[in-house]
């Protein structure tokens, strides 16, 4: 803040900003706090809406973790999210790179076609996906859960924009040095866009980790459920066991936190192309 922005008016503005930020922060963090708090309550205490449990217990965690289904769903979600993330990181960047760095007839039309799919919401695509999965025999398989997300228009668009910031000199130097086109992409261009790759990996992982509608529709066997689908089935079968659902949800946030902690420095660091003129 500049030196000129002090005085009663600026002070009032700051106070308003702080209050708004605090309210926004609370609105986002309270449900999480409540989730963790509920996971530490026993069944009798669940409807007692206190923030701190009267008799904190880890019994719910023991119950959930010793239930083989939960671990299975956790592994399913992890497997699906990891495979889809790796696929997106590879294919989205490959297509983005091609669109950004190669001149070919119809390039703009291809790009527009990819972009236009961004405007179609998942809910509209679910039925065509289902028909496709049924015709190919992919219903109730892991591939059935994963195939719609293996490449995304958003990821392609993001990577294209980042590759456009990579100076052509790098690629041409590599071309003169004797790399083939794939090696130029893999060894030179890709390492230069790691911040974008990290962002794409985080977005893709999170959206697949929390995906609900499509896995719910495409799977029928319980062994193939992903974690969100599995947790929701807790609520349907028996009476709703909120403390167990909250425990499962609390455990489900852990990979998310982990992914963000590992990758955030690449994102925060921003694009630094140190090989260019200083």
């Amino acid at each position: 803040m500049s030196a000129a922005a002090v005085g009663p008016r600026a002070g009032f503005g700051r106070a308003v900003a702080w209050v708004l930020l605090l309210a926004g922060g609370l609105a986002m963090i309270l449900p999480l706090v409540f989730m963790f708090s509920t996971s530490l309550k026993d069944a009798s205490e669940v409807y007692d809406l206190r923030l701190l449990p009267a008799h904190p217990t880890l019994d719910n965690y023991v119950t959930v973790l010793s239930d083989g289904r939960f671990l299975r769903w956790f592994a399913n979600s992890m497997g699906v999210a990891v495979v889809v993330t790796l696929s997106n990181v590879f294919f989205d960047s490959l297509v983005g790179y091609t669109l950004a760095k190669f001149e070919f007839r119809g390039r703009y039309i291809v790009f527009l076609a990819i972009l236009s799919t961004l405007m179609i919401p998942t809910e509209m695509l679910v039925i065509p996906w289902y028909v496709m999965a049924r015709n190919f025999g992919w219903l109730d398989t892991y591939w059935g859960i994963m195939f719609p997300g293996m490449m995304t228009a958003f990821g392609t668009f993001l990577m294209k924009q980042f590759f456009e910031t990579v100076p052509n000199d790098f690629l041409e130097a590599a071309r003169v040095d004797g790399l083939n086109e794939f090696a130029i992409f893999w060894r030179i261009a890709l390492p230069l866009v790691t911040p974008a790759l990290s962002a794409l990996a985080i977005f893709t992982f999170l959206s697949n980790w929390t995906a609900f509608i499509w896995p719910l529709i495409v799977t029928t066997s319980k062994e193939l459920y992903t974690l969100p689908v599995g947790l929701s089935s807790f609520a349907v079968e028996q009476q709703i066991q909120w403390e167990l659902i909250m425990t499962g949800a609390a455990l489900a946030t852990l990979p998310t936190l982990l992914v963000f902690l590992v990758l955030q420095r690449y994102i925060v660091r921003g694009v630094v192309l140190a090989g260019l003129k200083g």
Binding site: P167, D169, E172, I188, L192, G275
Partner: peptide, 8 residues
């Protein structure tokens, strides 16, 4: 190259 193009 003008921009050196050394790989960072």
């Amino acid at each position: 190259f003008q921009n050196y193009a050394i790989y960072p």
